[in-house]
Amino acid sequence: MIEIEPFDQDAIRLRRAFGCFPSGVTAACAIVDSVPVGMAASSFTSVSVTPPLVSVCVQDISETWPRLRTATRLGLSVLAEGHDRACRSLSDKNGDRFAGVDWDQSPHGSIFVHGASLWLDCSLHAEVPAGDHAIVVLEVHGLRAEPDTPPLVFHGSRFRRLAAI
């Protein structure tokens, strides 16, 4: 019989456990007050086909999300292999998050990272409080998919590559 250790509210241990699950990495970006605003999020998931919905989770202490939530449209870029530096830049707490990041914008103000495997043009559909995060549900209005572009994978606090078998 397998034994499961009781959880003792150790945040470091829990983070390490959550790191056992590999995830893709997204960039959520938009023009806000004529300035590019963006952040990286690794908690992206598809939610619904009808209506077309996706979600990301955002920490309550985020200083970026309150600015992004005001945008009419938001670009969600699923980062590709080789976007390690762009991901780190978009995660920085200080400085220009777009330094060294090649991007373009839609007529609606969504920002998309060049070379991403998927671009989704979204608007805010709902926000659901969840612990120390908000589950942000976004409605998809347009997309561009590059299915042959390998994604950036985050696992065990490191960027990794997918291997074909």
Results as ranks from 00 to 15, higher is better:
residue 28 A to W: 01
residue 137 V to A: 06
residue 37 V to A: 03
residue 90 L to T: 00
residue 1 M to W: 13
residue 162 L to F: 10
residue 107 P to F: 04
residue 62 S to E: 01
residue 143 L to H: 14
residue 39 M to W: 01
residue 41 A to V: 07
residue 42 S to W: 04
residue 28 A to M: 12
residue 114 H to I: 14
residue 93 K to Y: 12
residue 75 G to M: 04
residue 114 H to N: 10
residue 15 R to I: 00
residue 13 R to L: 14
residue 142 G to M: 02
residue 161 R to P: 06
residue 67 R to D: 04
residue 155 H to K: 10
residue 115 G to S: 09
residue 84 D to H: 13
residue 14 L to T: 11
residue 111 I to C: 07
residue 124 L to A: 00
residue 78 V to Q: 00
residue 61 I to W: 14
residue 94 N to P: 15
residue 81 E to D: 12
residue 124 L to W: 03
residue 95 G to Q: 09
residue 105 Q to M: 15
residue 76 L to I: 15
residue 152 L to N: 04
residue 12 I to P: 12
residue 87 C to R: 07
residue 84 D to G: 09
residue 80 A to R: 01
residue 10 D to T: 08
residue 146 E to Y: 11
residue 123 S to R: 06
residue 139 E to D: 11
residue 82 G to E: 08
residue 35 V to W: 08
residue 87 C to W: 05
residue 45 T to S: 13
residue 71 A to M: 00
residue 85 R to D: 12
residue 92 D to H: 13
residue 24 G to Y: 00
residue 118 L to I: 12
residue 113 V to W: 00
residue 28 A to I: 10
residue 10 D to V: 07
residue 17 A to R: 11
residue 8 D to P: 10
residue 73 R to Q: 11
residue 107 P to E: 10
residue 153 V to Y: 05
residue 80 A to V: 02
residue 12 I to S: 14
residue 94 N to H: 14
residue 50 T to P: 06
residue 74 L to P: 01
residue 36 P to L: 05
residue 129 P to M: 07
residue 102 D to Q: 12
residue 124 L to P: 03
residue 160 R to Y: 06
residue 94 N to Q: 14
residue 89 S to Y: 08
residue 95 G to Y: 09
residue 135 I to G: 02
residue 37 V to F: 01
residue 60 D to M: 12
residue 68 L to K: 01
residue 111 I to H: 06
residue 93 K to L: 14
residue 135 I to M: 07
residue 97 R to D: 08
residue 13 R to W: 05
residue 117 S to L: 13
residue 67 R to T: 08
residue 57 C to L: 09
residue 34 S to W: 09
residue 56 V to G: 02
residue 58 V to R: 01
residue 107 P to G: 08
residue 120 L to F: 01
residue 37 V to G: 01
residue 149 T to Y: 05
residue 113 V to I: 13
residue 55 S to Y: 00
residue 77 S to W: 01
residue 98 F to K: 02
residue 102 D to I: 11
residue 8 D to H: 15
residue 129 P to C: 05
residue 118 L to F: 05
residue 32 V to T: 06
residue 81 E to S: 15
residue 90 L to K: 02
residue 145 A to W: 10
residue 154 F to V: 05
residue 122 C to T: 09
residue 147 P to V: 01
residue 146 E to Q: 15
residue 165 I to Y: 15
residue 74 L to E: 03
residue 164 A to K: 15
residue 34 S to D: 15
residue 143 L to Y: 15
residue 82 G to C: 06
